[in-house]
Structure formats: C-alpha cells, structure tokens
Design a protein around this nucleic acid. Structure first.
Lengths: 376, 376
DNA sequence: TCGAATTATGCTACTTAGTTGCAAAATTGG
DNA sequence: CCAATTTTGCAACTAAGTAGCATAATTCGA
C-alpha cells in the first residue's frame, strides 16, 4: 500500500481535470470544469495551464454572446494520441485508426492468405494497419497503442490459449508478437468480449453494466461484461462455448440458421435464403428456426443462472433475424423456467469487435494517457 | 469525479497506515510501518499519534533486547469495533460476534419456530444475536455493523428476490428489517456467496481470486467470486441454480447423495449410511454415486464455460464424501470435454456462510472503519 | 459614447500536509 | 562509564490546495 504525497495528489487531480475536459466534445470554460471536478478554480486554472503546456489541452477563442467578461475556453486535444484496433477473423484482418475519443479516422482490410500460418497472418494484419493509418492521413508516430480482437481464449497477457480449429494459434503470444511488429504496446482479447465492450460503450447495452453478448451458430462465443469490465476468466476461457460439452453446440453448426454468423458471405447468403422462406411462412424453415431458438434459449439459460446478466445482446449476424428469432428465444426461455432477462439485438452490427478493441485500448491506456506522464 | 485536497490525502494516508498496522498480529515499531507504507517516518509518526488519540491504535511497551534506543511499539485495537454475522437457515438462526480482525468472540444458535413467518424469524435471529453478544462478554454498543446470510437471490440492497420454496420471503427487505431491529447497519447476501467469500479468506481458495463455491444436492447454489469480490448478478440471481431449467436439478434432490447437504440431521444421517455402503463397495450405492457425480459434473461444466473459474470448491456437506466424489466428478467433467479445472473440497465446512458474513461486513465497513471517520 | 451591470480572471496570502535532516535520547556491551 | 547503535523529536522547507479581493473585459441601456 503506497501512501500519497502532494505530487501524487497533483497527478490525480490532473487526471481528474483531463477526464472532465475529455468528456466534452465542445470547448468548455474553466467555470464549467470547476463545477464538475470539485476543485477550486485556482487549482483548475493551474492544472489547465500545465495541460496546455504539455499539449493535452488547447485554449480556443470562440465567438461569444453573453454579457460579462468573456471566459477562456479550453478543449481536449484528442488527436494528440491515436490508437489502432485490429481484428483477425478466419478470413480477413481489419484495422481501424481512431483518436482518443474513439472517432474512427481510417480503416483497412486485408484478406488473409493463410489463417493457419500465424506468421503470414501477422504480415497481413500489419498491412491492414498500414492501410488504416494511410487512410487516416495522420503521421504514424501518433499511433501510441493498439488492441487486437481474435477468436479463442485469450488471457490478460494477450496469449491465445485455445482456438479449437486452428492449433497453430495455441499458446501464440498474439499481443506481444503483433505489438512488437507494430512497435506499440498492444492488448489482445477475444472478439466476443470486445464486441460486448463496444455494445456497452456505444450500442445496445449502454444503460446496464452487467450483461452478456452472444454470437451463436456456425461460430459461438459469449462476451461477458461485469461492472463495466470484460470478464475473461481463468486463462481467458470465460464464455468459450466451444468447450461447453453440456450443450450440443455442434447441432447448431449444422443448422441453416447457425450460418447467420458465418464469416463467409456465401454461407450468410444461404442462411438469408432460409430467413426469406421462414418469413414467407414455409413450414420446414419455421421448424428449423424453432429448433435453433430452442438451442439458443438453452445456452442463454445457462448464462442466466450463472452470471445473471441484466441484458443479453444477440450479435454476430443474428440481428438480421431479430424479428423472427427474439420472440421465439424469449418464449423458449420462459418454457425452461429461466429468470426473465432482457434479450435484444445488437445496434452496432459487424463492426462491434473492432469498436470494442478501440475501447479496450482506451480503457487500458487510461493510466498512460491520464496518469503520471501528463504533467511532463 | 471529485478531486483531492490535502485533507483527503491525509484521510487516505491514515487509512493506509491503519491497514498496515492491522495486518500485524503482534505490536510493531514505527520503522516497520514506514517500510511498508512508503511514507516518511515523520508522517507515519503524526498519523500514529492521531490514531492513538482516536483509539484505533495503542502504544505498548514490550520487553526489549536489541542494542540502540528502544523503539516505540504500536498495536491495532481490534476490539474497538465488533461485527455480528447472522445466518438464517430453513431450520435455525445462528450468529457470531467477531472483532474487526475476524476473531470470533461469541456464538448463538436458535431453532426457528416458523421459517415461513418472516416476522417470527426476525425475532429468532435477534435472539441468536443476543446470545452471541452475551457469550462474547463484550458491551453491546461495540457491535457496529453486521451481515446476514440467507438462501435465495439477494440484491445489493439486501432485498430477497426469490426464495422458491418460501414465498413469504419474496421481496422481503431482509437487511433493512433485521438491521433496524438490531440497530446497526446490516448487509445481506446469499449463503453460497458468503461461503465462497469465506473460502477465499480462510479456506480452500486463498490463492486464487476467481473461483466458484458449490452446494449441490438437496439444496443447490453456487457462490461466485470474481477478482476477490462476490459476483451477485442482476437482482442477486447469479448462481441460483434453482432457476436453471437447463439442468435436471430435481433429480439431484431425490438422489440419496443429494441429502449430504440437507440442513436436517436425520437426512444427512441417511446420506451418510449410503456413503458407508459405497465405501464398502455396494453396487447400488456406487451406481447412485456415479449418477450423482455425473449430475454434479454437468453443473460444473456449465460454470466452467461461462465463468471459467480457476478453482471450484465443493462445500455444503459434500466434503464428507470428498474421497469418493471428487475423482468421479473430475472424470465425468473430462468425459464432457470440459476445460480442466481444479475441483476441491471446502476446508471450512459448515461454518462457511457465517464466516463469510463476517468477511462481508469487514469488507463493506472498510470505508467506515478505515475511511473519513478515523481521523476524528 | 459612456457608465452601470455582469462575469471571469489573475493574483496574493494562507492553510494543510508531506519531506528532509540533524541533534538528542535511550539503550547494550566492553 | 564511555563508545556504539538505533530510534526519536523537532525545526525548517516544499508542494499543493483554498479563499477571496481587486481588476479586466465584455454587454446593455440611456
């Protein structure tokens, strides 16, 4: 337990002021900030001066209308630090460069040459990052950190522990290897976890902070957010349905509606065709849809009694069937006697894991961005 | 986000020093504390003086042998604040009075007159508390706070949301009602959650901080600890297997080995008889034991893929069958293809929920004990 | 155009609290 | 009884937050 000295107090207060400043999209007056942070005006003034000197804040002079001496306006310099988010799928690597507020400035997409070859995939991923940086038009040096989303159980150190269909990835130090290649600190996490994080940040689960996000079907995974933070579990294995055993996941894989979440366009097209049939009232399609809903409900029930999330968000392609699937799943859960849980569809869609990676690095870099270094 | 002023800094440092002091069972010198808290000797000295004045610390003069000027010794005054833990079972209310270090000073036990009558049960619970305080020999006024362990889904405000076999308890504000009766701030939580907390504190799960604790059989419940804190889930429903639906829990209830965790002595005796038969190699008993192990394994698998705990602790009576049950459960989980998890038996036993209640109130009262009030 | 009203600023003086370091105190051992 | 040793007690200093007042820079109305 380390005690605090006055300089630690100043660091903390600096971080408080900077956070308050960063919350506003528009420039704000000192008085506004003083109201928020519960520090004296003088202190805020001194800290703001320091922040301007170190480049984290800028003073701007907007047009002014009110009576009285015009206040000084300050705004947060979001461009000062950029982050990059990478997503590695079985078929493609995508990347997004974003500023520290989460505004995406550029994107890149590269089709993977050979997913089973981790080395090649790292090259592909770097290409996607390069493309994203190029599109952003920002100097590369501004990209300070990054996060990568991938399938599999990924622990806090960014090591992939199990990726059932791709043994080459087992025990692969994804975060370290790709981070070294890109020359920045890099975090890694499971794509379902990151999708959940994104959904909490900007999607369908903003008002709750204990919930689960699911992709179920051809691929299957659950992302769990507890008290606002991703729950990874031991060696990142939380939410890794592939390991379930309890539930017959394989059956979902051979289910046409399971293909809704396939990374392959062709398979998604097949699934969409079944959806059309179901919407038209085709008996076989409705039968299969019902079975799929039952399977999904059984999985969600398992989540319900263990985690007891307040909300479950269905993502990963399932959202296109929202109208047909949701009522059936809810009904099936009721039949199972499960606690009534608010089940809803994603509002972010396919971009979720990438957006979640942005959020992950923003969260993790708080200390770096808002911590000791600021004062310098 | 509130900023810090010098007095907040002092409060924090005071709490740091007090915690460091409380870690030692024996009196310690100032120099030792200085080494631990990373504050200057002068500051520690001033804070210790204040703590002595406010009664949280006392200076003692032990015999001294080393050369040099003899140091001043200080020790933490654990008696200054006592807490009471209550456990409400279907058949009895028990209570324990403990000091702030968790040393139990007195106990009480009252057989419930009518569990379905919450009012009567509150009276019984208070009697148990009175008995425990009497046994401790401490003045009642020293008991500053308490916690109560009960079955059912209990939210953070201490309201019981579902207790399937006792509708009178539904939406009963357990913490508030009993707290008002006892005249102290009272926290409430599910007994499995509290047992898990106890196991983390003093039992079989001290070295991990993400794990689950189970009572399975006649009663069923799971307590989940994530990053050292109990995970309650929405409205306290996490780990409430009763709601499962997915798994055939009722079958376990009619299983003779399920009676191992019965609150009734008679039923436990029956179960013990089956254990004897199994140990003697009786085929029927071994068959039933195997089925029980399979059921348990299926439940634990569900925990494994959702939470991914590092350890699962079996408690609530199951520990008496440890030698026969554990290998079978582990084998059955392997058959299910579940991630290998360290499954072990409780080292605390039946006292776990009560001990967990002590820990809960100590954790929750940190702010009160170690927070702003100290300096006064 | 000028003065009153208004509002934010810049600063000085003061307080709290943490750090440094030195002289003095209290012990043991020869 | 003196040297060695270890800890204490305190004075002087520094960092950082608070309070509050005189002043500056506006708008508005006459």
């Amino acid at each position: 337990m380390p005690g605090l000295d006055p300089s630690a107090m100043r660091r903390l207060n600096t971080s408080v002021v900077l956070r308050a400043l960063a919350e506003h999209d528009e420039p704000v007056t000192m008085a506004t900030l003083v109201g928020q942070v519960k520090l004296s005006r003088r202190t805020v003034e001194l800290i703001l001066t320091q922040l301007c000197e170190s480049g984290w804040a800028v003073e701007v002079t907007p047009v002014h209308v009110d009576v009285g001496r015009p206040p000084r306006y300050f705004s947060f310099e979001a461009d000062r630090a950029l982050v990059v988010a990478v997503r590695i799928d079985t078929h493609a690597a995508s990347a997004a460069v974003s500023d520290i507020r989460g505004r995406v400035l550029g994107r890149g997409l590269v089709t993977l040459r050979n997913y089973s070859d981790t080395g090649q995939t790292m090259i592909d991923a770097e290409e996607a990052v390069d493309a994203a940086i190029r599109e952003s038009g920002q100097p590369r040096g501004r990209v300070r950190a990054g996060a990568v989303a991938s399938g599999g159980a990924i622990d806090e150190d960014g090591v992939v522990h199990r990726l059932i269909h791709a043994p080459a990835w087992n025990e692969f130090a994804l975060a370290d290897v790709l981070g070294a290649r890109l020359g920045i600190p890099l975090f890694a996490d499971n794509d379902a976890n990151l999708a959940a994080l994104a959904e909490h940040w900007r999607g369908a689960a903003q008002e709750t902070d204990t919930f689960a996000w699911c992709i179920l079907g051809n691929r299957a995974g659950v992302g769990i957010v507890i008290k606002g933070a991703v729950h990874r579990g031991f060696r990142g294995a939380a939410g890794e349905i592939v390991e379930a055993g309890v539930l017959d996941v394989m059956r979902m894989e051979t289910q046409p509606f399971g293909l809704l979440s396939s990374p392959l366009l062709e398979e998604r097209r097949q699934a969409a065709a079944w959806l059309v049939r179901a919407r038209a009232g085709d008996a076989e399609a409705l039968q299969l849809l019902g079975e799929f809903a039952d399977d999904v409900a059984r999985l969600l029930s398992s989540l319900a009694w263990t985690i007891a999330p307040e909300v479950i968000v269905l993502g990963g392609g399932l959202e296109v069937a929202e109208d047909l699937l949701l009522p059936r799943v809810v009904e099936a859960m009721k039949q199972l006697g499960t606690l009534r849980i608010d089940v809803r569809a994603t509002t972010i869609g396919a971009d979720a894991p990438l957006l979640g990676a942005v959020k992950l690095v923003l969260d993790r870099m708080d200390v770096e961005f808002f911590g000791p270094t600021i004062a310098a």
